[in-house]
Write a protein that binds this DNA or RNA. Sequence first.
DNA 1: TTGTACGCGTTATCAT
DNA 2: ATGATAACGCGTACAA
Lengths: 351, 351
Amino acid sequence: MSTRRATISDVAREAGVSVSTASVVFSGKTPTSEATRARVLTAAEKLGYTGPDPRAASLRRGRSGIVGVVFDQHLGTAFLDPVTTHMMDGLADGVSRLGAALLLLRDDGVTISEPSLHTAPIDAAVLIGCSPRMADSLEIVRGRGIPVVVIEGDAGDGIPRVLLDNVEAQREAARHLADLGHTDVVVVTLPVDVERRRGWIPDDAAVHVDITADRLAGVREVFPDAPALAAAASSIDEGAIAGRTIFADPSRRPTAVIAQSDLLAAGVIRAAEEAGLQVPRDVSVTGFDGVVVDGLAPHVLTTLVQPATAKGRAAGEAVAAMLEGSTPAGLDLTCTFRVGTTTAPPRSTGV
Amino acid sequence: MSTRRATISDVAREAGVSVSTASVVFSGKTPTSEATRARVLTAAEKLGYTGPDPRAASLRRGRSGIVGVVFDQHLGTAFLDPVTTHMMDGLADGVSRLGAALLLLRDDGVTISEPSLHTAPIDAAVLIGCSPRMADSLEIVRGRGIPVVVIEGDAGDGIPRVLLDNVEAQREAARHLADLGHTDVVVVTLPVDVERRRGWIPDDAAVHVDITADRLAGVREVFPDAPALAAAASSIDEGAIAGRTIFADPSRRPTAVIAQSDLLAAGVIRAAEEAGLQVPRDVSVTGFDGVVVDGLAPHVLTTLVQPATAKGRAAGEAVAAMLEGSTPAGLDLTCTFRVGTTTAPPRSTGV
DNA sequence: TTGTACGCGTTATCAT
DNA sequence: ATGATAACGCGTACAA
């Protein structure tokens, strides 16, 4: 009637073998005779022993088999973006060689609870995002001596990063619009800082989010004076809010809008249609990501298709490599420009 | 130049105190004098000690602070459904009282890798979904003696469950259509088994997925003979595929389609419009979930709004309660029927 | 307030 | 093929 759970030594005693033999039977690391193997298994079943305690095994091995995925925002919010979900998909794939599971962690800087980034039993970490906050997360993880890979963010010396060619890609889209004859272009950007404030970005304002800054820089190489309007998140609703601002004054409407994400672009298109504008006849719109946006039909967005799943997988593989002792270089992934049905020459070209 | 990481006893020695004192300084479980506290912290910093090893602490405490979330499908797929992401959101919230982190686990029955459901260092588990596969997952977790909560699935004796009133809710939608005058109704269902096969469901076929079966039962209480077409997943694309099948033959078109999810409903609407039908004039469509579906505008779906976030939170709180020793009862959540713009009386009523 | 001593459940090493 | 033994790094009665 003892309520204590059976341990491997209980099983060993019951089976009449040594603890090490019992251990070996469960791990399979060393060949055992069929007879003892059966005895151990029988004893285990009798005692209700379901295998080694992962905590003890983890202590002994120095590995937990867990890879932490660190977000800098609310998890629910993060998963609402298809790019993130696809990336998680790839990540799960990439670490599968290790057979590691993914631990969802959020580092918002105020976490008092455990396990936080400070105490989670992780073998490695993947940092996602690009906010200033991430520098702190990086510090914490590095301090613990845990291998880390950064996705789309700035990192120090020798930390593998998975990056996108944001500047070049976005420049290509801008170039496409310029080639079509557009000169009056507005950019709708992703959040510019942790506060995620909406609004026009002053020319002299520093943009603290790498992705946002890079994509904006790409546009400015072609349209140096393009105004930029920051959204509070990457979502259709935010895009619509930005779009309404942009299309509010009929006399000052741009002929094209460059959105920094497909979700934002979809919202901009919605706002344009609300304002009685036709896309692409009255206004061209480009996106970024190349995800499937529900409800965009019949439009096919002109956008930069980013390899979201590959991004996650690359990070996962880099983590796996680090855990196996090698030091993977970072990886630069490239986006593919896709011309859809949402861009056309400006209507007033001949005026 | 020793490469070994410092342990708490190194720190204690350096600080000239005992290990237990050092331990106490880090855990804060017992008051310590300010002086020793400072000495220990200084020593730790000097040695590059960043806090107790979570693996050892976890072994000692018998807790890892990790709650496993078990899916029965590819993680990427799961996260593509807004209901799931919202639920994860609530779950993260619900377990936050424990300060627990969420470990993503997938049990597809063929996992050879570690940590699997068998070996993950989890304090508790949340089982999501309702496939037959889940019974096995349940068995594994229970075998390990780990507290478990099931969301929308069948479970045995004494296992807390978070359920929805699927039958009643879906019946309400069906009743709504009946009241409008519909008699010719088709149901588009969620997957009926692990194989996720598409196609018409024979009357005598057993439906192995609880949600699917329950929602279908709700419809059949009002429309006993309504044909049911199974989709392979809950997505707009799958809904469109089903819709095309349904609307293919103009002479046999139903006047209403009951979809078992909003995503499916959106796809059905798309298919209807492709077929030249107007919603709701030519065909009424209802959904289930009450999530925001991108691209559905200007339609507002007539649907059952389910408390997805609350569902996750309830599960999280149940887990927290179990870990604290109490035995929470299951929770039955109810959906709210919302009349939108996608249902109307059948056009041919007067014929 | 601080220290001593033991145990948490495994697994790796080495010897047999 | 099997067994004895020593870590793994920490938390916590209990004593002082």
